[in-house]
Design a protein around this nucleic acid. Structure first.
Length: 631
DNA sequence: CAATAGAGCGCT
DNA sequence: AAAGCGCTCTATTG
């Protein structure tokens, strides 16, 4: 018979487990509470909901509110201090609920089995419950957000938008999931039940669609990636708190001085974070303003105050002071105070000496990962002073080393692969630096006579192809005139005809696909580009650039994801993947097996089975105590 | 009050 | 006419 839709007693729970035990796949969803509800490693799970063939149920495990709202939330000014005081809403008493330990113990046979565990953004739900088991449930998994993304990367991927689009069901006007403890018991019960139910419905619809669209192989890879992400994210990343605190002190001290320098040069105190105020001071007429000529404009037409625009006015004291200030301010605000939190409501992102970055395998349209809370994919480069100090915050335990590996010029190698035999291809087979080889061809000199400036032009040309940049951008990048840039681009086209044949060919193929234009990456990931047929020229051009870029960037993502999965299957005990930055992997490894571990990592990234391109795929693994050693 | 947009900046 | 991201701050809007 059907199990109860709301579980409040042990008997209810047993009926549910009995029913779900007879099924080989089920969807589930968690609701979490508290300030850190979004951090799977530390949050509290206060609701579980389950759905499968013919049934759905919701299990509260400590919701604080009853069914009745007795008084709405409000606030008032404290007369003495003038500060705002928030008065929380009041509810009737909650019903008696099962304890988390009881519930998770009873559900163990469901989760720790070969049943397919399905959720919408499954890493979050699996890691949220993993705490209660001391480990995460094993595969197989299903993830409706990943399925939805593979089926169409150009749409909102939230559970609600998808459910509404597919079934017309629009059930969350109050944003209950954002803070379940602000809502009465019945509202949350209803909401959580519907989350599990709609996840199940979406699964039933989308999983067959994956096969029908020929996406089964890339789906298989992504589910292996999901497994790998659990291993990566569950333990978090160890951080040196003492170093983080002293970095904060150093930056604050330094920044106070630079702030004063800016005010001195400006002749007044102003808000350094305010773009309009900076615009007035820099470009406004004297004596208040500096009267500088704007050289770059924002997309809304305002004179830009970004580093690029200010670069034209180096030597102006105010400009120089602002540039110096801005650099440190970004580091302090984003990478230091952003992690430590503050007393104004910004919570710390460091828990027990660890950060828990969250990687989204569905986070980009091209197949790459995105990363948040915190984003460790945009840490300042390790060849800068502050980049070293940020990256050195990662603190391997005393008996561990850090293995850092990245693919060498992977995007250009992928371009060479797609373009086929020619100068670029041959350059890689000859083991040459790709930019030197390009410069030699474009400037018509032997490789040993290629200068720094010539190599810089070649580098710009590579970007121009991969991103679709025009002569203006190349000129900016290489520090040459637009006329010269145009000339180099023509020469490049003559010397590397196969590259341009490839661009034409892929564009033609993709444009011709129906019902809408899409491309295939190396591992048959799809990227749909409907704008390729747009009547608007600007949109069409942009889509044409995206074709080439997504083909290359998406193939890079395929390879990195495959390497991660290979690593996850071959890693030695004690090794932990820490992070992935598009063409780079960083791994923690016990010191006594560091050499062996480096080989495993190397093999996963660039072994025989990873030679998927027509040109060699190379990677170098560095073994370090701290990241700054990795250059 | 909260939510959103714009500018800016960090990364590959 | 430069591809893909996330975070912080300010200013504006609801």
């Amino acid at each position: 018979m059907h199990p109860p839709q709301l579980v409040l007693t042990r008997d209810d729970l047993h009926e549910v487990v009995d029913y779900f035990s007879a099924r080989d796949e089920f969807a589930f969803d968690v609701e979490t509470s508290g300030r850190d509800r979004g951090v799977a490693a530390v949050n509290n799970v206060t609701w579980m909901s389950l759905a499968t063939h013919g049934a759905a149920t919701v299990i509260p495990l400590g919701h604080p509110n009853g069914y009745e709202l007795l008084r709405k939330a409000s606030w008032r000014k404290n007369k003495a201090t003038g500060e705002r005081e928030n008065l929380p809403a009041q509810f009737s008493d909650p019903p008696t609920q099962l304890r988390p330990s009881q519930v998770f113990e009873a559900l163990r046979p469901l989760f720790f089995s070969n049943r397919t565990k399905i959720a919408h953004n499954a890493t979050f739900d699996l890691l949220s419950i993993a705490k209660y088991y001391g480990g995460y449930p094993p595969p197989p998994y299903g993830d409706t957000i990943v399925a939805a993304w593979l089926l169409n990367e150009n749409r909102p991927l939230g559970l609600k938008p998808l459910t509404k689009a597919r079934y017309g069901l629009d059930y969350d006007h109050e944003n209950v999931g954002k803070c379940v403890e602000a809502h009465p018991f019945g509202t949350v019960a209803n909401y959580a039940w519907l989350d599990a139910k709609s996840t199940w419905l979406l699964w039933r619809h989308m999983r067959p669609q994956i096969d029908a669209d020929g996406l089964a192989p890339i789906w298989g890879l992504e589910m292996d990636v999901l497994d790998c992400l659990l291993h990566t994210q569950a333990p978090g990343t160890p951080v040196d708190i003492a170093a983080l605190n002293s970095l904060r002190d150093d930056l604050r001290r330094e920044l106070v001085g630079r702030e004063a320098g800016v005010y001195r040069a400006a002749g007044k105190v102003f808000n350094l974070g305010s773009t309009p105020q900076k615009q007035a001071l820099l470009y406004g007429p004297p004596p208040e303003g500096q009267g500088l000529q704007p050289r770059r404009f924002t997309k809304t037409g305002a004179p830009s105050t970004d580093a690029d625009a200010l670069g034209f006015h180096k030597g102006n004291p105010l400009v120089d002071e602002i540039l110096g200030y801005q650099e440190l301010a970004t580091i302090l605000h984003t990478y230091v105070e952003g992690y430590l939190g503050d007393n104004e409501g910004r919570p710390s992102q460091v828990f027990d000496g660890r950060i828990y970055p969250s990687f989204a395998q569905y986070g980009t349209v091209t197949g790459r990962f995105s990363c948040r809370s915190p984003n460790v994919q945009n840490w300042p480069r390790p060849d800068t002073v502050w980049g070293k100090r940020i990256r050195d915050l990662v603190e391997p335990s005393p008996g561990s080393r850090l293995l850092v590996a990245d693919y060498a010029q992977i995007e250009l190698r992928i371009l060479a692969h797609f373009a086929g035999p020619g100068r670029l291809w041959q350059g890689f087979w000859d083991g040459m630096d790709a930019h030197v080889a390009t410069a030699a061809a474009v400037f018509g000199v032997p490789p040993e006579e290629v200068t720094k400036a010539m190599r810089q032009v070649a580098k710009g040309l590579a970007f121009a192809i991969i991103y679709g940049a025009g002569p203006g951008k190349l000129a900016d990048m290489a520090g040459i005139s637009v006329a010269k840039a145009r000339g180099f681009m023509r020469t490049h086209e003559r010397e590397f005809p196969e590259v341009y044949r490839y661009k034409d060919e892929i564009l033609r193929t993709v444009r011709g696909r129906r019902p809408q234009p899409y491309l295939h990456t190396l591992l048959k990931r799809r990227r749909r580009l409907p704008d390729l047929l747009s009547p608007v020229a600007a949109l069409r051009s942009r889509a044409e650039r995206q074709v080439v870029n997504s083909h290359i960037q998406g193939t890079n993502a395929d390879m990195t994801k495959l390497a991660m999965v290979r690593f996850n299957k071959t890693r030695l005990p004690g090794m932990q993947l820490l992070l992935t930055v598009h063409d780079e992997l960083a791994v923690l490894c016990p010191t006594e097996i560091a050499e062996e571990g480096a080989k495993v990592l190397h093999e996963a990234m660039a072994g025989e089975d990873m030679q998927l391109l027509g040109v060699p795929v190379l990677t170098e693994v560095k073994i370090c105590e701290r990241w700054s050693e990795a250059k």
